[in-house]
C-alpha cells in the first residue's frame, strides 16, 4: 500500500450496452499508482463488465479510459501494448491448456514483450517462486488444483510486469480450503507497490487490503470511499442492505 498521488488510470463516464440492455450507466473513477481498489456489489450489477471495459475485453459504448492521461479508446492507440501493461486474473483461471505451468508464464513475455527465452524463463521462475508454484513447472493446468491454477495465473500475469493488475473474483470458483492460499498471495503482491483493482465477495479481505472501495449496483457507483467509510459509515441504503445480507450469510 504505497499509494502516491499520481493518477494512473481513470474511467470517465463509461457506458456499456448489450443490445437493449444498459449494463453500465455511468462509471467514473480514478486509480492512483500503487493503490489497491476493490469493487463490491450485488450480482449482475456490472462489476465484471467494468473490469472488462478497463482492459478492453469489452468495448465501452461511450466514455473514456485514460491510462497515464491518454485515452486508450482512441483509434491509433496501441491496445496490445496497453493490455500487456494491464494484467488480468480470471475467475476460472483460464490457464492455457496446451502449455505447462512454465510455458504459461513465458509465452506472453516472449510474444508480446519480445523477451528472450532465457530471460522469460528466469522471470517466470522468480514469479512462480513468489506464488509458491516453482515445483510444478512441468505440470499441465489440468493436473493442478483450483488454488494452484489460480496462483499460476497470478504468476503468469505478473511475469508481464504489469502496471495494473485486475482480479475478477479470483477466489469464487475455489473450494473454501483453497481460498486462503490465493488471498495470501494477493496480500503479498499488495505490499510490492503494484496497482490492483479487485472484484471480490471476500469482505474481510477487502476491508483489510483496500485503499479505496467502490460499491457498484445497477451499473452505477452508488458509494465509494475507504473501507472504514463503507463498512462503518455507509451512506447509501443499497450498501447497507448488501453488507447486512453479507453478514447474515
Amino acid at each position: 500500500m504505497t499509494e502516491s498521488n499520481e493518477t494512473i488510470l481513470s474511467l470517465k463516464n463509461i457506458k456499456k450496452t448489450f443490445g437493449e440492455h444498459q449494463v453500465l450507466k455511468d462509471i467514473s473513477f480514478d486509480i492512483n499508482k500503487g493503490e489497491i481498489a476493490t469493487i463490491i456489489g450485488p450480482s449482475g450489477g456490472g462489476k465484471s463488465t467494468t473490469l472488462r471495459c478497463i482492459n478492453l475485453l469489452e468495448e465501452p459504448t461511450a466514455g473514456e479510459v485514460d491510462f497515464h492521461g491518454k485515452n486508450v479508446l482512441a483509434p491509433n492507440y496501441n491496445r496490445n501494448i496497453y493490455r500487456a501493461k494491464v494484467g488480468m486474473v480470471f475467475q476460472q483461471f483460464d490457464l492455457f491448456e496446451n502449455k505447462n505451468v512454465l510455458a504459461n508464464c513465458m509465452v506472453g513475455q516472449e510474444l508480446v514483450l519480445k523477451r528472450s527465452k532465457d530471460e522469460a524463463r528466469k522471470i517466470a521462475m522468480t514469479n512462480l517462486k513468489k506464488v509458491g508454484m516453482e515445483q510444478y513447472v512441468n505440470a499441465r493446468p489440468s493436473q493442478l488444483s483450483g488454488g494452484q491454477q489460480q496462483r499460476v495465473a497470478i504468476a503468469r500475469a505478473i511475469s508481464m510486469d504489469p502496471e495494473i493488475l485486475l482480479f475478477d473474483e479470483p477466489t469464487s470458483a475455489l473450494d473454501p480450503e483453497m481460498v486462503g492460499e490465493v488471498l495470501s498471495v494477493m496480500k503479498n503482491l499488495a505490499t510490492t507497490g503494484l496497482t490492483m483493482i479487485i472484484v471480490t465477495h471476500e469482505m474481510a479481505f477487502a476491508k483489510e487490503i483496500s485503499d479505496q472501495m467502490f460499491f457498484i449496483s445497477d451499473g452505477v457507483i452508488t458509494e465509494q470511499g475507504t473501507p472504514d467509510q463503507l463498512f462503518n459509515h455507509p451512506q447509501n441504503e443499497k450498501t447497507v442492505k448488501f453488507l447486512s445480507n453479507f453478514q447474515n450469510n
Partner: peptide
C-alpha cells in the same frame, strides 16, 4: 476463456490463433 486470457496478455489475433 482461452481467447480472453491470451487477449489480456496483449497477444495479437495471429499470436492467439497460432500459439493458443
Amino acid at each position: 476463456g482461452q481467447f480472453e486470457a491470451a487477449s489480456a496478455l496483449g497477444m495479437t489475433h495471429n499470436q492467439r490463433m497460432w500459439h493458443i
